[in-house]
Simulated assay, not measured.
Amino acid sequence: MTALIFIARYGKLALICGLLAGLLLPGLAQVLRWWIPELVALLLFLTAFRIGPVDALANLGELGRTALVVLVLQLALPVGFLLMLGLLGLPVTPLALALALVMAAPSVTGAANFAILLNGDPAPALRLLILGTALLPLTCIPVFALLPGFGDIGDVLAAALRLLMVILGAAALGFALRHWRVPDLPEQGRKAIDGLTMIVLAVVVIGLMSAIRPALESDPLDLLLWAGVAFALNFGLQGLSYVTLRRNGYPAAVPTSIVAGNRNFALFFVALSPEATEPLLIFLGCYQFPMYLTPTLLRRLYDPR
C-alpha cells in the first residue's frame, strides 16, 4: 500500500511515463491496444469504488443541470461548428471531421481521475460520463446528419450501447463493493486506490498510442500538425469552459471543464471507412498528449495557488 500511495503522490509523473512508454515501446503498445476495453472497465470500477455510491448520488438534483451540460457539449458545439462550415462553404476535411467528432463525443473514462489529480470533485465528472454516454444515441443523430457519407449510424449506436453497458456494469460493481465491504474508506485507502488508478491510466495510454511511433518515423511533420491541433482543441475547450463556468459561479467548473476537452471520440470509428480512420488514428494518439498532460500543464488554470 505504501508504494501505491507514493505513486498517487506523483500521479502526474506516472501519466507522463505512460506517454513516454507509448512512444518508446511500440511493440508493447501494439499488444496493449487489444486490452484497452478490459483496462477501461477496470479503471471505471476503481473510480466508482473510490468515489462510492453516497458521493456519486449525493446530488441527484443536479441531474437536469448535468443533462444541459451534456447537450451543450455533445450537441450544440458540434452542430454549431458544422453549420458554420456550411455557411462558409468549407468542406468537411479530415481535420474538420476530427474536430466535429471530438465535440460530439462523451467524456473519456479517465476524466474523474484527472479531476482528482487537480483537487477537483470527481463525482460530477463520473455523472457526466454516464449521462453523456447514455444520451449519445440521441445527440449524435443531428451531427451525423450534417456529415456527408459518414457511415452506418446503427454501428455507432451499438458501440455507444456497449460502452454504456460496460460503464454501468463496472460502476455498479464498484459501488456495490464499496457499499457492502468498505462503506467508510479511510484516506490512506483512497490514496492507495488513486495510485493503482494511475498505474492503469499509464498502461491504457500506451495502447492508445499504437499509431504514434509509425507516424513519427514515416511523416513527422504531419504528426506535428495533428499534435498541434490536438493540443489547441483539448486545452482550448477546457480553458473556454472553465472561464465561462467560473464566471457564472458554476460549482462543478473544474470537472466539467476537464470533460469538455477530454472526449472519447474513438467510439465513432466503427462507422468510418478505413480511408477516414487512418489519419484519425494518428489524431487519436496525438490527443493522448494533451489529455494525459492536463493535470500537469493546466494546474495553474484550475488551481492557481
Rank of each mutant, 00 (worst) to 15 (best):
G52Y: 00
A104D: 06
A41C: 08
L237I: 10
V166T: 13
A100M: 08
P279L: 02
T109L: 15
Y302W: 11
A176P: 01
L118N: 02
K191V: 04
A67D: 05
N248W: 14
M291Q: 11
L90T: 06
L75C: 15
L101V: 05
I141Y: 12
G61T: 12
A115C: 08
V70D: 03
L75Y: 10
G154V: 08
E187K: 12
R50P: 01
H179V: 10
L131C: 08
E278W: 15
A8M: 00
F265W: 07
L24M: 12
T139C: 05
M291K: 11
A76N: 05
G52P: 07
P78Q: 04
P124G: 09
F45I: 05
I36P: 00
A14C: 08
M1N: 10
L129I: 07
A176V: 06
C140L: 15
R33W: 12
F144H: 14
G154Q: 08
V143F: 04
F49R: 09
V69K: 03
E278H: 15
P53L: 02
V254Q: 10
L284R: 06
A172M: 09
G89S: 03
P304W: 04
A170S: 03
S273L: 07
A115E: 01
P91C: 00
L147C: 12
R190V: 05
C140K: 06
L196C: 13
R50F: 00
L63I: 15
T133E: 07
L267V: 08
L42F: 04
P183Y: 03
G154A: 09
A76M: 11
A230L: 03
T133W: 03
L118F: 01
L46I: 13
L118T: 04
G261I: 00
E217A: 13
F175S: 11
L135Q: 04
I51V: 12
L23Y: 00
V270E: 02
V92K: 02
P78R: 06
I258R: 02
Y10N: 10
L15K: 06
A41R: 13
P214G: 01
G228N: 12
L201W: 02
L28P: 01
L157W: 05
G27Y: 09
I130L: 13
A159K: 15
L224E: 09
Y250G: 10
R300E: 10
A111H: 00
A96V: 03
L281G: 11
L75I: 02
G154P: 04
L4V: 07
L42D: 02
V143N: 04
F265H: 06
E275I: 15
A100V: 07
R213W: 13
P106K: 02
G195V: 03
D222F: 14
V204K: 00
A29L: 01
V70Y: 01
L20F: 12
A115L: 11
P274A: 09
T294Q: 06
